[in-house]
């Protein structure tokens, strides 16, 4: 497991070097979204090597550090960080305006205003095909999350768990 990054290193570098020129959607979309994090340039991409369009991920977390870190992890794996939000209102707002169409949303639970489950329910009402991963430090919400059809990650989790869950979620799309 620990060597995964190394093994996949070579194609990643190649892909990332070309990325800035070929990918029109990433940085522009991020810029439009306002709070979006700048995507990492050295992204690892298996999907892109195969010539597919990168899957879009949105990240919602009230912790600034975690927004940055998760965006790093996700873009390293070659996914497009489409949107980064700091609370449920922001993501629900963006989805309902139709300005973003994420395949997967990585959603925190405990946030100001509305919690992750409420936000997930609102997003799914507008965009039912969206896959949502609830990542939280609350161990009591797992049942609520899974019975609502969401994926669940209990913080703290290793990067491989995040990547695996994103892959599982994408397999459902």
């Amino acid at each position: 497991m620990a060597t995964k990054g190394t093994i996949e290193f070579q194609p990643a570098l190649t892909a990332s070097l070309g990325r800035g020129r070929t990918s029109a959607s990433g940085p522009e979309a991020a810029a439009r979204a306002g709070t979006a994090q700048k995507t990492a340039s050295n992204a690892v991409s298996r999907a892109k090597v195969a010539g597919e369009v990168a899957k879009k991920i949105a990240i919602v977390d009230n912790d600034e550090e975690l927004r940055f870190l998760f965006a790093q992890v996700v873009s390293r794996r070659g996914y497009q960080v489409e949107f980064v939000a700091q609370d449920g209102d922001e993501i629900v707002d963006a989805v309902s305006k139709g300005s973003i169409h994420p395949d997967v949303i990585l959603m925190d639970y405990r946030m100001a205003r509305m919690n992750g489950l409420e936000a997930a329910a609102k997003v799914l009402r507008i965009a039912p095909k969206t896959q949502i991963i609830l990542d939280t430090a609350d161990d009591l919400v797992k049942r609520d999350a899974t019975s609502a059809g969401l994926f669940f990650l209990l913080k703290p989790f290793p990067t491989v768990a995040l990547v695996k869950t994103i892959e599982d979620a994408l397999a459902r799309t």
Binding site: D63, L66, L69, F70, L154, K155, P156, P158, T159
Partner: peptide
């Protein structure tokens, strides 16, 4: 747990 998440991912 949140702090640990930050440390671990970093």
């Amino acid at each position: 747990r949140n702090y640990n998440q930050i440390s671990m991912t970093s």
